[in-house]
Amino acid sequence: MNELPTTAIHIDIEVHKVIEANRKSFEDSQNDILRRLLLSPSTNGALTAPPQLIGATTVRNERSTGFYGFVLKGNTMSFNNLKAAYKNCLLELAAADGTFLTSLSKEETPARRLVARDRKALYKKTPHLADEFAEELVDGWWLDTNLSQQQVESRLQTACKVANIAFGSDLELKFPSL
């Protein structure tokens, strides 16, 4: 492949994080990552933006970090990372009970709420963390995504109490052993 001329660009930390989140190997250059995200070869050799990026402002791919799953009342679901499993478990509980998220929003740890209507309200002592770690769950409800596996398990135990289901039987986690 012919070497194309290069241009230095300045990017902010959010764009840098998107680039790094899409790194497949340490051999990937930032240009390789951006090329993969933004350009795809067409039949005539020209480069075009893929359809899912047209009009997109931010593209964030989930990292695959292993197998995480759960069985909720006999329904098995599996995901490539802890965050996706946690989020989808909460979504399943919310779908079964329209008052679940409101009830869960009353639960908190000393430093954080489990879910909140205001993303900064998730972080009682450190609201600035919302900019990086709060993610919309559904319809204006937010959750914290900066959690360890142990914290997720603890929060799901609390969620089961709120949903009035038995943790360990109605909801079984299929997470890697700590």
Rank of each mutant, 00 (worst) to 15 (best):
L82N: 02
V15N: 08
N164G: 07
V15A: 12
A94C: 09
I19T: 03
R60P: 01
R113S: 14
R36A: 08
E135I: 13
N61G: 07
Y86H: 11
L178D: 04
R35P: 00
P5A: 13
Y86P: 05
L143V: 14
A130I: 00
T158M: 15
N80V: 08
E92Y: 07
I11V: 13
S148C: 03
A130N: 05
L101P: 11
W142Q: 08
A166N: 10
E132A: 10
A49E: 00
P50K: 01
K120P: 06
D118W: 05
Q30N: 14
A130E: 04
L104I: 15
M1F: 14
Q30W: 04
N164L: 13
A121M: 14
D118R: 12
G55Y: 01
A121Q: 15
G74D: 07
S42D: 00
C89A: 07
F26Q: 00
K106P: 10
E20N: 14
G168T: 04
L156N: 06
L38D: 01
L129M: 09
T145C: 12
T126Y: 13
V152Y: 13
G140K: 03
R35F: 06
G168M: 02
S177D: 06
P51K: 05
G69V: 03
L93Y: 07
N2P: 05
L38W: 07
P5T: 09
E135G: 06
P110F: 14
E20F: 07
F133C: 05
A166Q: 13
E92G: 01
L122N: 14
R35T: 04
T57K: 13
L91F: 01
Y86G: 05
N88E: 07
K24W: 04
N80H: 12
Q149I: 10
Y68K: 07
Q150K: 11
L93R: 09
L34S: 08
A21M: 08
S177F: 02
G74S: 02
F175L: 01
N80D: 08
F26G: 00
L129F: 12
F100P: 11
S148D: 01
E3C: 12
A163R: 04
P41G: 01
M77G: 04
A94H: 07
A134K: 12
C89P: 03
W142G: 06
L171T: 02
Q150F: 03
